[in-house]
Structures are given as C-alpha cells and as structure tokens.
Write a protein that binds this DNA or RNA. Sequence first.
DNA 1: GCAAGTATTTTGGTATACCAAGTCTCAAAA
DNA 2: TTTTGAGACTTGGTATACCAAAATACTTGC
Lengths: 241, 241
Amino acid sequence: MPDSADTPPYRPLREQIAEKMREGILLGDFPPGSSLPERETSAELGVSRTPFREAMGILSKEGLVTIRPARSPIVANPTVHELTDLLTVQAALEALAGELACETGSREDFEQVAGHHETMLMISDTAPALEFFKADMAFHSAVVAATGNAALMEIHAQNNARLWRVRFLTSSTRYDRDRVLQQHGRIAQTLQNRDKVGASSTLREHLKDAVEKISRIYAKQDGSADHSGATRLNNHNEEEI
Amino acid sequence: MPDSADTPPYRPLREQIAEKMREGILLGDFPPGSSLPERETSAELGVSRTPFREAMGILSKEGLVTIRPARSPIVANPTVHELTDLLTVQAALEALAGELACETGSREDFEQVAGHHETMLMISDTAPALEFFKADMAFHSAVVAATGNAALMEIHAQNNARLWRVRFLTSSTRYDRDRVLQQHGRIAQTLQNRDKVGASSTLREHLKDAVEKISRIYAKQDGSADHSGATRLNNHNEEEI
DNA sequence: GCAAGTATTTTGGTATACCAAGTCTCAAAA
DNA sequence: TTTTGAGACTTGGTATACCAAAATACTTGC
C-alpha cells in the first residue's frame, strides 16, 4: 500500500489502513457481522499484520469493528435498539450544540450553517441519496462546529461514524426531503436569531424524528419472533449502497 | 507482568497493561505531559513493545494519552478550557440521563442510586478525599446506569475517565461536602418521583457548579500572562495524590 | 450411528528484528 | 562566538517469527 501522492505529511500505515477499511465498511464492502481475519485481510491490503491490528484498534474505538479476545475482528453489527439509544444521545448533544452556538457562535459560523442549508436546497431535486445524505451530515456537523466546543465536536463526530450506516439506510427518500429541508431552515433561522430554546428544541425534535423513523422501519420484522429489539441492520437492503 | 490471580477469563496483555497505565496516570505516577518512550516503559512493565503499543492505543482512545506520529506517546495534558468544554458536555449527558431514568428506570435502579447516596452520607465525616470522590463518581454513574441506555453509559464513562484528574483536584473539600450531599439528595428524590424536569435540571445545575468551580480555581494564574484559557492542570498541586 | 475425546489446523497474541524518521551532538566554517 | 550541517544515536513504524488458544476435523469407543 504505497502512499498515493505527495507524502509530505507522512501518515502512518495504520491510519491509511484504517481509512481504507472504514470506507469499505461504511460503503458495505464489508457487511456488518463479517469477520476480518488478520492474515487474510492484511495480505489483501498488502501490509503486515502489525499495522493492520493497530488499524483495527482505531476502528474499534470508532465503533465500526468489534474485537474480542482470541477471535477474529468482526465488522460491528449493532442492534437497532443500540443504535436508537445512541441516536437519543446524539439528539441531546445536538440540542446542547444549539444552545451553545446561540451563546458563543460567530456570524461566520452561522453563515457556514446557512451555506450548507442552501447547498441542500440547491441539490435537493437532483442529488442521489448518498450525496444528499452527506450534505445532511455536513449541515449537522456545522451546527456543532459553531459551538467551538472541541470535546462536543469530537464526540459528535464519533457518534456519527457509528450511526452512519443506519442513518443512511433510513435516510430521507425523495418524498420527505422537503420535511428535512424545512426543519433545517428553522434550525438555521433560530441560530441566527440566537434563540437558544428554539434552536435547542428544534434540533431535538429533528433528531427525535429520526429515532422514530428508524423504530418504525425496523418494527415489523421485530414483531414476528423477536420482541427484544435485537434486530440488526444487515437483515435487509444490502443492495442500497 | 504475570497475571496476578485467577487467570480463568484470560485477559490479553494489552488490557492488563492499559489498566496498569491508566491507574498510574490517574493517580499521578505519570504526570500530565510526561513522555512514555515505548522501549523504556514497556521494559519497566516487563513486556514487549507490541502489546504496550496496543495499550497506548486503548488509552489514547480514552483520552488519557496522546499519540503523535513518530514521537513518543505522552500523558495527555489538556487545557482547563478543554476540560470545562468536556464537562459541559457531560452535564448535558447527565441531564439527559435524569430524564431517561425517570421514564424507564426501575425501582431497583433508583435504590442503587439511593444506596450510593446513603453511603456518601455515612462516610462524609470521616472519608479521605479520594474515597469520597470515588463515591461521588459512583453515584453519578448509577444515575446514568438507571437509564439502561448502553451508549449513554459508555460515553459517560469515557468522559469521566478524561475528567477524573481535574475533578479530583478540584473536588469538594470537607467544608462543601454538605452542599454536594444536599444536591445528591435532591437528585435521588426527583428520580424516585419520576420528576423528569426536576431531575434533569438539578443534575445540570450540579455539574454547572463543577464547571464554575474549576474555572474559578484556575482563573487566577490564567489572568497573569495568559488569557487564552491554555492553563494546564500540572501547573500546581502535584502533591494532592 | 452418535458422541466424546484427541489430534491437527487455523488464528489471534506476543516477542523480536530491522527500517526509517526524528533528535541530538559536535565539529567546521562564517 | 554563533550557526549550520553532517553524522551518530534514539525512537517510533513495520515486518516476521514464534507461541498459545480456538476451532475444526477426525478417530475411536460406546
């Protein structure tokens, strides 16, 4: 795995591997639950086990792979219940972000947010699912970035990585993009007005919508034989991505 | 590093090392900012570099050490500003925990919380700082545990590890233990009453107290030559622990 | 035919060797 | 005396070898 272009910053192999694997996992090349034997997988990447193992360590901290003692690492395969729990946390964090941003955000920060919103309005009619989804994520990250709270940004980003897959698989279809855009518009507005409670509650509701949507989508198969909420994502639409 | 006692569960060396180092860092054996050269430090532990490096990876994910490419790992030395930012996040998470616990917590969960509170009341007059502090942390963890939200528990625990040092260094002296106990009593009460807004706001205020206390304690030296909030913990009271 | 136990193989865990980037030192030139 | 650059040395990065635990397959006895 030669470093593709410049080399000036020098990135350790482990990070390059982690990035490649992360991409592969998020894009579904390595489906949830599949195992990643060290020798085989590292050989495919053309690297030795050592940096590969370190890369697995990085991805496990991000929640994308699970590593168990004396067993092959596997691509994380969280239950829907675990994911909605995490999304509930993320909702609270974004609500906090709304508050803090109103208190300390700069005009430039809000323009960033507004910029992302306008982009989404622009591409809404034409963009494929993945592009629209990425723009959606970028909008939310911009809101968090407006707080200037590094810890909040870090935790939020990490949670988003874990949520990437569900959120994409359940992301808005063409038909309810309008609803998302409307909520985003309200969020951008309340921020610019420095309306703490407005921003906070709007963000919270926006994410609560997502939680309910996920629960609804995965509710049926859960009802048949399994009431424990142990449904997993890879039970369906592997084709999406 | 022989495994001290039982060995049945088989814990990988990396985890044993991580635990030992974590303890050493939290207790101040390895002061913030100090470097941890791989050969030397691993040799002191009687292990090779490989599992030591993996342990460093674990601790870096917990925010206790910082690893930079091609340089020795160093014990994390966050600024007071970064820590108050993180504590602000933690406050929001505990407020969320209060809400969720009121909704879904079981009677046993609340009894756990109350139990920790009673322990603190009991030892308040006699316990040394470290013991009282640990009981305090346990109380808060119990509140979060009462939600049954695994993601919340995980993130909360990780934040607590990062905050351990500041929170201990600025933890309540004998003279304001009463204030802490009073607030804890109110928290336990609101939970048992399933008073969502009460629990949430009380927890938030309780943590906001901590943020202000830290800011106050570190305000002076910050004023002299440095208005950037870049004050670091190891500037004083290394003797505490 | 089935089950339990054992041997074999596979695979993660750890140690070690080697490489390359970083740093430090000291000498030589300005 | 100061600065700078070359070389030695230190230290993290990576590859490989070896060890031990799991998993698997096979055999043997019921």
